[in-house]
């Protein structure tokens, strides 16, 4: 259960230690990619809690979402339209929805547990 969190910390540490920097004109792509990755992660957690988790969907969704989001941003830059906003919007809304669902599920579980303990 704690392993993913450990992975996150390890990733951050790795990133800070390697001292990588990307050119600032590409940083918007990276932020979109981060958002997409977050969306997939949260979506995966939700699916897992709802017992509809599928590892193929999860892993493919992770890469596909990142690629789609960055290419949308890329297209937007070349068309002169801020298309990356579409990705930000979509992922943002989904992120909130998923987190809300996770919260509700966890809340229900917690309340059930408390009731059980009382009885």
């Amino acid at each position: 259960m704690w392993l993913p969190l450990l992975g996150l910390l390890l990733g951050i540490l790795l990133g800070l230690l390697t001292d990588w920097r990307i050119p600032s004109e590409y940083s918007s792509y990276l932020s979109i990619a981060v958002l997409a990755a977050f969306d997939t992660l949260i979506g995966g957690i939700r699916a897992h809690l709802q017992n509809i988790y599928d590892e193929h969907v999860f892993v493919s969704g992770f890469f596909f979402n990142i690629i789609l989001a960055t290419s949308l941003a890329f297209l937007g830059v070349h068309l002169g339209v801020d298309l990356y906003l579409a990705a930000v919007f979509a992922f943002g809304v989904r992120l909130f929805q998923n987190i809300a669902v996770i919260r509700r599920i966890l809340l229900t579980k917690w309340l059930e547990n408390r009731q059980k303990n009382r009885l």
Partner: peptide
């Protein structure tokens, strides 16, 4: 499943750190 989540969060952490460093420049 745990390994998948760990892998994904590792990548997210890495991207976050790089993004952070880039914007901190």
């Amino acid at each position: 499943t745990i390994w998948h989540f760990t892998f994904v969060s590792l990548i997210i952490g890495f991207m976050l750190a790089v993004q952070f460093q880039t914007s901190q420049e």
